[in-house]
């Protein structure tokens, strides 16, 4: 391939991403961004998104990190099957994820029925939003975290154990810090995915301002009527996503210094 041809292809690929994003900005009259974002529905949506994704991230880190460690470094019979199953939501269409969650945790769902008997209803609550985000985003973190743990030199583990570290200390004081770069990158990407979650939330949690209407759902809702607010929110989400990507790039450079 000629250099000019290759350059043109690269430029085309970049334009394919940049043009639609710029198009949002071009549609937004100057000053309209602030106006649009001052709409209560937009503010509520951003705050709700921040709150729910933070909770989802915390659960993801607390549960996902040890699970990824076990899967990557303590293989047991069937570990690869488990690993594959945990990755499934990544390739699942969000609408399917939403229906699946509904049938599991909905009012008449397998788990939801039991919970309902105990007086807990999940559908249409903020908890449902968190569950949907967790379901679609956690696999991204799990995958990255497993890769990061798998890349640790096994002799470090031996060294830690021969230094008197039990399994917990080995995990917290050696495995996690050594894999930190990959863990941070995975967490950032998963968080961004949770922030953008739409299909599963819409089906499973519904859309109600301040309760279940996250930023992506608000964009969808505001497009009917309050286009400026929808565009304003879109700009915020694009900016956040871009910042996350840059952050991941920078942090992976910082952490990947060989020892």
């Amino acid at each position: 391939m000629t250099r000019i041809g290759a350059g043109a292809l690269v430029a085309l690929a970049a334009a394919f991403v940049i043009v639609p994003l710029l198009a949002i900005l071009l549609r937004l009259p100057p000053g309209a961004l602030a106006d649009g974002l001052s709409e209560p529905a937009a503010v509520d949506a951003l705050l709700l998104s921040l709150r729910t994704t933070t909770i989802a991230l915390a659960i993801m880190l607390a549960v996902g990190t040890p699970v990824a460690f076990v899967l990557a470094r303590r293989p047991f019979p069937g570990a690869r099957i488990v690993s594959t199953i945990l990755e499934l939501p990544v390739v699942l269409p969000p609408a399917v994820a939403g229906v699946a969650l509904l049938y599991a945790f909905g009012r008449f769902g397998t788990v939801g029925g039991v919970l309902r008997a105990a007086g807990v209803e999940i559908a249409f609550t903020t908890a449902a939003v968190v569950l949907a985000q967790l379901f679609v985003a956690a696999p991204l973190y799990l995958r990255q975290a497993q890769a990061a743990f798998a890349a640790i030199d096994p002799r470090l583990e031996d060294a830690a154990r021969s230094c008197g570290a039990g399994p917990t200390r080995l995990f917290l004081r050696v495995a996690v810090p050594v894999a930190a770069g990959g863990l941070v990158a995975g967490a950032a990407l998963a968080w961004a995915r949770a922030l953008g979650e739409f299909g599963a939330t819409l089906l499973f949690a519904g859309s109600l301002q301040g309760v279940t209407q996250t930023a992506p759902l608000a964009i969808y809702a505001l497009l009917d009527g309050s286009t400026e607010s929808a565009l304003g929110l879109s700009v915020v989400l694009v900016t956040i996503s871009f910042a996350v990507l840059i952050g991941v790039r920078l942090s992976s450079r910082r952490w990947s210094t060989p020892w």
Binding site: A123, F124, A205, G206, S207, L208, Q209, T212, Q213, Y220, A221, D224
Partner: peptide, 8 residues
């Protein structure tokens, strides 16, 4: 106050 979701 009973509304749980507003659909598009």
């Amino acid at each position: 106050s009973n509304v749980v979701s507003e659909e598009q």
